[in-house]
Write a protein that binds this DNA or RNA. Structure first.
Lengths: 148, 148
DNA sequence: GTGAGACTTTGAATCATTCTAATTAGTCAA
DNA sequence: TTGACTAATTAGAATGATTCAAAGTCTCAC
């Protein structure tokens, strides 16, 4: 069952939206709640279905809009794997993604600062990168804790 | 103008295809030639248009098929950026990709073995990865040599 | 030269995503 | 309260990359 947002999370949402001149709406709150409730990198469709349990009138277009808004104000990250549907991730700390070939599940992998540094170091002069995306593919031993 | 394949490249193509029980056809040769001619990570459509200059009857589906075949037998790599059209890359040495935000161009960045090692090292036990993909996004100073 | 299997072709179908136009909700001023 | 303004939401159509299905062609072993 989907809990409602903690006060802290609601503040977080409000602050991020306000900072870019946008409003907290019940739809945005619902979508954000869904993202935080189960941190399993859901697709738009998955978010849509989960959110509708709580807000039946919600439209798919709105879910797209909300997620785009959140990405725009830095509340969530997109995760793409090849041409599969885009997935969404509310984990903001620097991390890589590991995609299990068998299940399609995506796991977060913590990314230590020195690794990031060594990656930046391989860029030739003149290349300046704000964003680095790292994704592994392979097999993850079932160790089904931390449901990423 | 599109040159034809060198003998070496033709052998390379032949060997890779044969190894997986597939044949060299004139279409595959044309598509492969296009990929090697200009190493700029073309989309399917770009490959299609270039290849048709040399083989007017070629169909789009065949270009999709050829590229899929090449990926399957390890002759080329796919490069995806968000939901843009997939691009194709005949560079087989380990490398990352850098996507210039302004131009959309993709550049290859050589990937030293020790960086790969340090990346593998961040995987928790139980995670086994065959493939690591690294992509940078940012600005590349116009230094328009090596047309990647 | 025939037949089997691999490859190619055309055009239709799919599917995620984006767009458009119309509606609703929220806010502020009078 | 009323109206006016703006941002957000909605439903459904449109888009665009990719895949699929069916029919046609080629090649090579026999």
């Amino acid at each position: 069952m989907i809990q409602s947002l903690t006060d802290l999370d609601r503040e977080h949402l409000q602050e991020a939206l306000n900072k870019s001149g946008q409003k907290v709406t019940s739809q945005r709150e619902a979508v954000f709640t869904v993202l935080l409730a189960e941190r399993d990198h859901p697709t738009v469709d998955e978010v849509f279905n989960r959110a509708r349990e709580v807000m039946p009138g919600l439209s798919l277009a709105t879910v797209y809009n909300c997620l785009e808004t959140f990405v725009g104000c830095g509340l969530v990250r997109q995760v793409n794997h090849e041409r599969e549907s885009t997935r969404y991730c509310p984990n903001l700390s620097p991390h890589a993604h590991f995609r299990d070939k068998e299940t399609g599940r995506v796991h977060d992998i913590e990314l230590p600062p020195e690794v990031i540094k060594s990656l930046r170091a391989i860029l030739p002069p003149g290349f300046d990168s704000e964003i680095i995306e790292i994704s592994f593919q392979g097999r993850a031993q079932a160790k089904d804790n931390s449901a990423n």
